[in-house]
Design a protein around this nucleic acid. Structure first.
Length: 480
RNA sequence: GGCCCCAUCGUCUAACGGUUAGGACACUACCCUUUCAAGGUAGCGAUACGGGUUCGAAUCCCGUUGGGGUCACCA
């Protein structure tokens, strides 16, 4: 059985984490079909029928997001495909024909109410606790057609049956029955000739041979409209599956105000796409073996739609960060982390040479950061002699002032400057003065790093090198 | 408010009629340790409530409560 899935984002702003989330599942379903040796395609279609909310660069940024995550579609406006175009604004002629087809078959009608009339009607209907009744519905079709032909502005509305019920068979839930009398006559074609979501979505899914509609839960209530449309056209329904909505901490639908929702933010912060994907996969789904860390291929191997959990998952930045740190420490190699971090920094306009020194600093920082954006702020003293010295460090330096000068001299004359040598020397130095090693190391750390938070003393000294270290300690001894 | 969906630790979740209700994040303590982390160990912490069904219910049914979504010529 072929599996054709899609995501249908609107280019109205930042590339949204919810699009990535839904994309992950759609992408996986198509990949699974291919792995079984069956037809599987994942389509990205741009739903840009609302010219009022259109944002010019939004589409490109959606492609970038999907590419970054490795959820590249098989068909899209970018790479094309057999059932294009994949931008609804380039398909407008099509929808008018389908709308007219429904008018001709009696499943839809032309309506002439103005927005003002409609809001009055709506207010009245709501007061009476019922759905809006559109007067144009009862117009004689021929008369209505004549008005349209004469150039009068009109929309096309779906003629929802007054009786009976429409059942949505969501594959994650029990059948959901909607009373037809509670469904209003949705606009299918706007006065500007553009289709609404409902029409465009159904027509395109049909023409693009979509078999599985996996989308967010917020669409459940409009699904009966879509079911009615499929029936009106005489088309078989796709499989429906409504995924839970990602939530803010207060359980409301995830929003910009309460969470970073733009995937670009996560890119800027230096999250890894692998970690992002892994984390998203755990929103509403768990690996059957309880694995916390798994890659996209593994997800595709074991994911099953029926294992999706329906409670709305709260998007936890804490857990994402933890997971990203886990990838840095346990999944990627040190070399890979260095390369990725280097590329990240270059993208942030911080060109650093990808050399032995950089790699040494990265090695020390891997257990000390969760995301790349933390790297520079925690390692300033590795890159400049003009590093900040905090208050606590200043105090420690003063405590160490009596011996820092001597210590500098000792370090300067060491036969080597590797970890073993500096450690032995430091311990000896402390013992000679009747000090605990810590009493020497703390001021030394403060002098060399300007902070009490640093990697291990001796690997840090070795990485910095004798020259830097001695100069810094001498400077601290002088009180500079 | 009408309609619809949902309901296990603070959060993500396991359990698919029989477990001392398990794991992970966060938090706390301890260990490791030259600091900060990382890592290890332990602790804290949940079946929303009320009725059924059943020998037995987190699990099935009903109700209540709570949360969420949706009610546009936006998607």
């Amino acid at each position: 059985m072929p599996v054709v899935t899609r995501i249908a984002p609107s280019p109205t702003g930042d590339p949204h984490v919810g699009t990535a989330y839904i994309g992950l599942f759609n992408h996986a379903l198509a990949a699974q079909a291919r792995a079984r040796g069956e037809e599987g395609r994942f389509i990205l279609r741009i739903e840009d029928t609302d010219r009022g909310r259109y944002v010019a660069d939004s589409e490109t940024r959606i492609f970038q997001m999907m590419g970054w995550l490795g959820l590249t579609p098989d068909e899209s406006p970018l790479q094309g495909g057999p059932n294009g175009p994949y931008r609804q604004s380039e398909r407008t002629g099509l929808y008018g024909d389908y709308a007219r087809q429904l008018v001709a078959s009696g499943h839809a009608y032309h309506a002439f109410e103005t927005p003002e009339e409609l809001s009055a009607l709506r207010e009245q209907a709501q007061g009476e606790g019922r759905v809006i009744a559109v007067p144009s519905r009862d117009l004689d079709p021929a008369a209505a057609q004549a008005r349209v032909d004469a150039g009068e502005a009109a929309v096309v509305r779906l003629k929802v049956p007054r009786e009976g019920e429409t059942v949505v068979n969501d594959s994650l839930r029990k059948p959901i029955a909607f009373q037809n009398r509670e469904i209003d006559d949705k606009v299918l074609l706007k006065a500007d000739g553009f289709p609404t979501y409902h029409l465009a979505n159904v027509v395109d899914d049909r023409r693009m041979e979509v078999t599985h509609v996996v989308r967010a839960e917020e669409w459940i209530t409009s699904t009966p409209i879509h079911v009615l449309l499929y029936r009106a056209f005489g088309w078989p329904e796709p499989v429906w599956a409504h995924m839970p909505l990602l939530r803010n901490a207060d359980k409301s639908k995830i929003s910009k105000r309460k969470n970073p929702t733009s995937v670009e933010w996560y890119m800027d912060q230096g999250f890894l796409p692998e970690a992002m994907l892994n984390f998203l996969a755990t929103m509403g789904w768990t690996h059957p073996d309880g694995l916390e860390l798994f890659d996209l291929a593994e997800f595709q191997r074991v994911f099953r739609l029926e294992d999706v959990t329906l409670g709305g998952p709260v998007f936890s930045l804490d857990k994402l960060k933890w997971m990203n740190g886990k990838y840095l420490r346990e999944v990627l190699s040190e070399d890979e982390v260095a390369k990725r971090l280097h590329a990240y920094l270059a993208g942030q306009k911080h060109e650093l040479p990808l050399d032995k020194y950089f790699r040494a600093v990265v090695r020390m920082m891997i257990p000390r950061m969760d995301v790349f954006s933390e790297f520079l702020e925690k390692t300033s003293y590795f890159w400049s002699e003009d590093y900040p010295v905090n208050e606590k460090a200043q105090k420690l330096i003063e405590e160490g002032r009596p011996f820092l000068g001597n210590l500098a001299a000792r370090l300067k004359n060491l036969p080597a400057f590797d970890q073993a040598t500096t450690e032995a020397e430091l311990r000896a130095f402390a013992e000679e003065r009747g000090l605990k090693p810590g009493k020497v190391m703390q001021p030394l750390r403060a002098a060399v790093a300007g902070t009490g938070e640093s990697p291990g003393m001796f690997e840090m000294l070795e990485a910095l090198g004798r020259e830097r270290v001695v100069a810094r300690v001498e400077r601290a001894a002088r009180g500079g």
